[in-house]
């Protein structure tokens, strides 16, 4: 393979479009990571079943869209609430008993992810399913260097909406104050009369709901099958690990990773881009293990 085959020659307009694609990739990664970041940040629980919650969101959309006939835009909140309910049950049933044994939550949630994958396979079969894109999203923006599909623009907007919503809940509501209090010191918050267990339940359900909404969009964008979650969970973990705890960190890290991935993919290829990306993440964590933003908290 010659050097020319490997390196795409620089050309301004496609390069600018690669930057736009970077934003699109970043929004997908951010949406995938948001729920994970909230759950990890608040509860210190590393939810290995996060990818499967995304998968459940996608299958919820499939069920409502293909079997019931609900329009796509309504499927989004439906996926949110259905998966949030499942998340609430998981927290009550499994996670709750393991708060004092954080390492066991890793194992428990991983086992849970296997159970979820196999149950979905038993119910819907192993073959890929189909989620349609609504016709009003079947457009493309084609203006000089910008080429972006309607669905991807929609996902960027949804990422902004979900981040804003999460920020509002965390920083502008009483519930958010309680969540942040429990985040900083569970015992102290409890002594001020905050029901920490209830806060945990709600946080886990909310994080799961975000994963569900993410799944609804990913099903339309990519492929829908029982093992789809594992692809997203790696990216989600990368975003959380690089970003550190908190909303702003995730936003910054997903933007950074998405752009790097897109630019390296443009100049070389997808495989090499991932290699560079993972290497950079390891080097970065060597020097800043707490991530971009640590929000003045101790490491968990």
């Amino acid at each position: 393979m010659s050097v020319h085959d490997f390196w795409t020659p620089f050309s301004l307009l496609p390069f600018l479009n690669a930057l736009i694609i970077g934003i699109s990739l970043a929004s997908i990664w951010l949406i995938a990571a948001l729920g994970l970041a909230i759950i990890y940040g608040t509860m210190g629980v590393i939810n290995m079943a996060h990818g499967e919650l995304i998968m459940l969101g996608a299958y919820t959309t499939y069920v409502f869209q293909s079997l019931v006939g609900v329009p796509f835009l309504i499927c989004l909140p439906l996926a949110f609430f259905v998966v949030a309910a499942i998340g609430w049950v998981i927290e009550r049933g499994v996670i709750r008993t393991l708060y004092t044994r954080p390492l066991d939550t890793l194992l428990a949630t991983w086992g849970l992810s296997l159970i979820l994958i196999q149950s979905v396979r038993l119910i819907f079969g192993g073959e890929p399913q189909y989620v349609g894109v609504p016709s009003w999203l079947n457009f493309q923006i084609d203006a000089s260097f910008v080429h972006l599909s309607g669905l991807r623009l929609f996902i960027v907007l949804m990422a902004i909406i979900l981040v804003t919503l999460t920020w509002y809940i965390l920083y502008r509501t009483t519930l958010g104050i309680r969540v942040r209090a429990v985040m900083q010191d569970k015992e102290m918050a409890a002594s001020f009369g905050i029901d920490a267990n209830r806060v945990y339940s709600l946080t886990f359900a909310y994080g799961a709901g975000l994963a569900g909404a993410a799944g609804a969009m990913f099903g339309a964008l990519k492929t829908l099958f029982p093992d789809m979650g594992s692809a997203y969970v790696v990216e989600a973990f990368l975003v959380v690990v690089v970003g550190g705890i908190g909303l702003i960190g995730s936003v910054f890290s997903s933007a950074l990773l998405g752009e790097l991935n897109s630019v390296f993919s443009y100049f070389t290829n997808d495989t090499f881009a991932r290699f560079v990306l993972f290497t950079l993440v390891v080097v970065f964590l060597r020097f800043r293990p707490q991530g971009i933003i640590s929000e003045g908290m101790g490491r968990r």
């Binding site: 694609i21 990739l25 990519k222 991935n261 897109s262 443009y266 290829n269 997808d270 881009a273």
Partner: peptide
């Protein structure tokens, strides 16, 4: 261009 097995992101390739 080659994508990893299971990879599902093709926009960078479509850009090229």
């Amino acid at each position: 261009d080659y994508v990893p097995l299971g990879g599902s992101e093709f926009t960078p390739i479509f850009n090229k």
